[in-house]
């Protein structure tokens, strides 16, 4: 690799790795537009900081490290987006599930699910429902859920990066989980 010609090098990397990176980003973000933007930004960042890449690692490893940072940054931004932070304090999900004493409403009490299937994730129909249910979550609830599973980090660390208290974070996750569970139950698992 000749890093004295960054444009040539990066062009070559685009040819070799951009499809893989796009596939990865699309899977993580579920949005064509966002995935394309993030891959584009990654190559631009790679081009600008190519001197830092000293061939110590595989180009693919380096590029994916940048891309993963961009994906996490995207969800952090989405989480903080003031246009959607109203939903942060949206507690209406509680009213649909719990009574005035915060006990389960009679018809909402979770019952055992009848699911015999072990490899649900191999079932395209289930994946479709899972994605649809994720899509129904308010934007920053979804960002919180994504960040929780995306970053193999301790809760405290995610909160630091988001600039919120842990309490705030798990309360959002609590509401998101309640809604997600309900959606999956209605559409897939029948008690």
């Amino acid at each position: 690799m000749d890093i004295s010609k960054p444009a040539t090098t990066v062009t070559c990397w685009v040819d070799l790795y951009s499809d893989k990176m796009y596939t990865w980003a699309l899977h993580k973000t579920s949005s064509i537009e966002i995935a394309e933007d993030l891959v584009q930004e990654t190559f631009l960042a790679a081009f600008q900081s190519i001197r830092k890449f000293e061939g110590k690692s595989e180009p693919q490893t380096w590029l994916f490290a940048i891309l993963n940072n961009k994906i996490a940054e995207h969800f952090r931004k989405q989480f903080r987006n003031p246009a959607i932070t109203e939903s942060q304090s949206d507690t209406s999900i509680f009213d649909t599930l719990f009574d005035a004493n915060d006990q389960w409403l009679k018809e909402q009490r979770p019952k055992q699910w009848q699911d015999e299937q072990t490899n649900l994730l191999d079932d395209a129909a289930f994946i479709k429902i899972l994605q649809a249910c994720m899509g129904k979550l308010p934007g920053n609830w979804m960002a919180a859920v994504r960040l929780k599973y995306l970053e193999e980090k301790k809760g405290e660390l995610i909160c630091q990066e988001l600039g919120i208290t842990p309490t705030n974070f798990w309360q959002i996750l609590h509401r998101a989980k309640l809604q997600l569970r309900k959606c999956l139950e209605v559409n897939w698992f029948t008690p």
Binding site: A7, V14, D19, Y22, W24, E36, F43, Q60
Partner: peptide, 24 residues
Amino acid sequence: NVSVDNAATLNNEALKETIINNIP
């Protein structure tokens, strides 16, 4: 789920072109 190597890679030629054209 999608690990880098076993994913059914999607092609995005348009994206490739855009990126290459935007490299200074």
